[in-house]
Measured scan of single mutants.
Amino acid sequence: MEQATVKWFNAEKGFGFIERENGDDVFVHFSAIQGDGFKSLDEGQAVTFDVEEGQRGPQAANVQKA
């Protein structure tokens, strides 16, 4: 698992990007966020996640709020 920071997340559209420590951004979809209830992330929030290869490149999976 990697630890990184949420760059931005649009709760209405259900997706955003996580900024990795190496500077690369990773796409995150609300369905990858672990937990119950409304799944959203806040800008600047610390998260841990795995990286999977998606249809359009790397994307976050198993996202957990740190």
Results as ranks from 00 to 15, higher is better:
Asn62Glu: 04
Gly16His: 02
Asp25Glu: 10
Glu19Gln: 15
Val26Ile: 13
Ala61Met: 11
Thr48Tyr: 14
Val26Lys: 02
Asn62Gly: 04
Ile33Phe: 04
Gly23Pro: 03
Ile33His: 00
Phe17Asn: 02
Val47Asn: 03
Val26Met: 07
Val63Glu: 02
Lys39Met: 07
Phe49Ala: 04
Phe38His: 09
Phe27Met: 01
Gly16Gln: 01
Lys13Phe: 10
Arg56Glu: 06
Gly57Glu: 02
Arg20Glu: 05
Ala46Phe: 13
Lys13Glu: 04
Glu2Cys: 14
Phe9Gly: 04
Gly14Gln: 02
Trp8Pro: 04
Gly14Thr: 03
Glu12Ile: 13
Gln45Phe: 05
Asp50Gln: 14
Ala61Arg: 09
Glu53Pro: 10
Phe38Gln: 06
Gln45Leu: 07
Thr5Asn: 08
Asp50Glu: 14
Glu53Asp: 11
Glu52Trp: 10
Ala46Leu: 15
Gly37Val: 05
Gln55Ala: 14
Gly54Met: 06
Glu2Pro: 08
Ala32Val: 07
Phe49His: 04
Asp42Tyr: 15
Met1Leu: 12
Trp8Asp: 04
Gln64Asn: 12
Ala61Asp: 03
Gly35Ser: 09
Glu52Pro: 00
Gly35Leu: 08
Glu21Asp: 11
Ala61Glu: 06
Lys13Asp: 03
Glu53Lys: 10
Glu52Gly: 07
Asp24Pro: 15
Ala11Ser: 12
Val51Cys: 09
Lys65Cys: 09
Gly44Ala: 04
Ala11Cys: 14
Val6Gln: 01
Val6Gly: 03
Asn10Met: 04
Trp8His: 03
Glu43Tyr: 13
Glu12Val: 13
Gly54Leu: 06
Asn22His: 12
Val51Trp: 09
Gly57Met: 03
Gln59Glu: 08
Val63Lys: 00
Val47Ser: 00
Phe15Pro: 00
Gly23Ser: 07
Glu12Trp: 11
Val6Met: 01
Trp8Cys: 09
Arg20Val: 09
Gly35Phe: 08
Glu53Val: 14
Thr5Val: 13
Phe17Lys: 01
Gly35Trp: 10
Phe27Lys: 02
His29Gly: 03
Ala11Val: 12
Glu12Phe: 12
Gly35Asp: 09
Val26Arg: 00
Val6Pro: 01
Thr5Leu: 11
Gln55Cys: 15
Ala46Asn: 10
Ser40Gln: 10
Asn22Leu: 09
Phe49Ile: 05
Val26Leu: 15
Asp36Ile: 12
Val28Gln: 01
Gly37His: 07
Gln55Ser: 14
Gly44Trp: 05
Trp8Phe: 07
Glu52Lys: 10
Phe9Met: 02
Val51His: 05
Glu19Trp: 13
Asp24Gly: 12
Gly44Ile: 02
Val28Trp: 01
Lys7Arg: 08
Phe15Arg: 00
Asp42Leu: 15
Asn62Lys: 08
Ser40Leu: 08
